[in-house]
Design a binder for these strands. Structure first.
Lengths: 333, 333
DNA sequence: CTGAAAGCGCTTACAG
DNA sequence: CTGAAAGCGCTTACAG
């Protein structure tokens, strides 16, 4: 049905090998031949077959991306950025939406030659699959969530530092009765943001008591429940720090439902600066991550590894910035 | 590096063909042989090579999905649902995030054998590429946005009907000074929702004047500008109907910024019922689409077409429902 | 610069 | 039930 390089060869009056050479940059072909072949190609509408090419070259030109949850708008934004940077380097993107179980599917895809490598956005600590994949030296990079000590390329926001900015900001404005709402502590983002926040608070003389730290799922609903419980048990807290914007929106909703005024009675701070954070109805103070750069670095590192499997693993941390909006007050310190 | 079926054959003491047969369901292999081969496979960690399989079978096991914009949470939800239904039928998903130009990339992928077929979520009218792809009988299905008269499988919400529900609801509660904010009229969703709304209004005796219909981009920012202009030029309108939830959130923001009370002064209605619509801070009356079913139907139709390229094209419309929340008042009529 | 040929790793008639 | 062999459509040494 579809035309092959052999059809083009016949049409152009050259050998099949010459057709192939015309397609491969940097191969010597005379201008006259090249023109004749190109002409024949467009005439019969030839498109080279990927599978055949993959068999010879060992490269699929496709990269896998694993995402846990598209319900948190941060991930669609990251996915879109990854799509852009992969596209810029002429790669296709195969996506797995994980809810946990699909990490293995992505790793299998490397072994069966469906993708050249995988970008994990939502890996958790103690991942068995990850450990096995690293043993097999599968080309992969962790972005956003990272794993301490894992021997692979990793890219993330400098989460401890970003959370430190929040602590500085709150203390500078006397909002020291704080609580923290996180997702699972197995996610490095929550672990590092909580750690950075709590450490900095302690250094500033306002240690964060354990009972003012709560963990839940990364959903609006769970965030609402967690916030409600914290606020009920600790009616005196005046700032709620959340490990991401999605949870912070839930905190805003909960405060509103409880008749707690934001920012007068309570400041709410998120992390990520997703698009919704700047909407008038939400208007969230948060820490911005540069998603485009996160994606660009992840792509760059993975492609570099494909070219050189033996290069040393690199850990990239991007500088976060505090973005002050109406869920808190005053300019940043 | 990676083990091949030949390696397995050597290990198991059988021919390479027998190894292949063990992998192919419904091929006669004796139990004893099968066991020996399976054993050898796990021993050397064999995974069949996809590209080789694709060359022989002509099937990649991968479906392409084209999405225009992950900034509208409806699309991540649809993408997640598609991921689920494709996964259930044992297919991988390659994603193109389009901003317009990537439709062709997805169609090329069919021709070069990277994907077996493509699901378009955001096709617009008068798409040249689509027309050419249909001529070449490329296996594809349109979901969400459709094209009148295109000879391919299509799945969408019954948009005219859904928008009619809104008109009924508004008129039943005396909110008849209405305006409409849409995205591009080249998107069937906007065209059909506007059409269904306006027709039903007219039939109920409250025709919608042209100057109360505005089109813009499908972004929060554009929605804000459009809503602000409409509300400034027509301070007497008491209901704003938007062609999707994203635009409705923008309308809510704009009303809030202008000191217009919702729902006392103005009702705001969206379409899609994305997750955010039920958040307390947004709390949007809207028309629900069943995203999971949208995805399931699209997947079913595409896979059916791959099995039988000559089956007649089908048009599926899913029943929408009105969901009343705090951006309007009273129970539905 | 170009052609003839090998081979990537599978599936699947064709014999037996 | 099993093996030997052809072939899917390319890329790339090897000659010339």
């Amino acid at each position: 049905m579809a035309a092959t390089s052999r059809d083009v060869a016949r049409e152009a009056g050259v050998s099949q090998a010459t057709v192939s050479r015309v397609l491969t940059a940097g191969t010597p072909v005379s201008e006259k031949t090249r023109a004749r072949v190109m002409d024949a190609m467009t005439r019969i509408g030839y498109v080279p077959n990927r599978a055949a090419r993959t068999m010879k070259t060992g490269r699929t030109g496709t990269i896998g991306v694993v995402v846990a949850d598209l319900g948190n708008p941060f991930y669609p934004q990251l996915l879109e950025a990854l799509s852009r940077s992969l596209d810029a380097s002429d790669h296709r993107m195969t996506v797995w939406v994980s809810d946990g179980g699909k990490n293995q599917a992505a790793l299998d895809a490397i072994r069966e030659g469906t993708v050249d490598g995988v970008i994990f956005t939502t890996v958790t600590e103690h991942s068995h699959e990850l450990a096995r994949a690293l043993e097999q030296r599968s080309p992969l990079v962790l972005v956003n969530r990272t794993v301490e000590g894992a021997d692979c390329d990793q890219v993330s926001s400098a989460n401890r530092q970003g959370a430190g900015l929040i602590a500085d900001y709150l203390v500078a404005h006397g909002r020291t009765r704080t609580a923290f709402i996180g997702g699972t502590p197995l996610a490095s983002t929550t672990a590092q943001r909580l750690g950075g926040f709590s450490d900095r608070l302690a250094r500033l003389g306002h240690p964060l008591p354990d009972e003012l730290v709560a963990h839940g799922a990364y959903t609006h609903e769970s965030g609402c429940r967690t916030a409600a419980r914290l606020l009920r048990l600790n009616p005196d807290i005046n700032a709620l720090v959340c490990s991401n914007d999605l949870l912070a929106f839930a905190a805003l909703d909960t405060a509103k439902a409880a008749g707690i005024r934001v920012p007068e009675d309570l400041w709410v701070i998120g992390y990520d600066d997703i698009q919704q954070a700047s909407w008038q109805s939400l208007n969230l103070t948060t820490v911005r991550q540069d998603v485009a750069q996160l994606a660009a670095e992840a792509t760059r590192l993975l492609l570099a590894r494909l070219d050189d499997p033996d290069r040393p693993a690199i850990r990239v941390e991007l500088e976060p910035t505090l973005v002050v909006r109406a869920s808190s007050a005053f300019a940043p310190a």
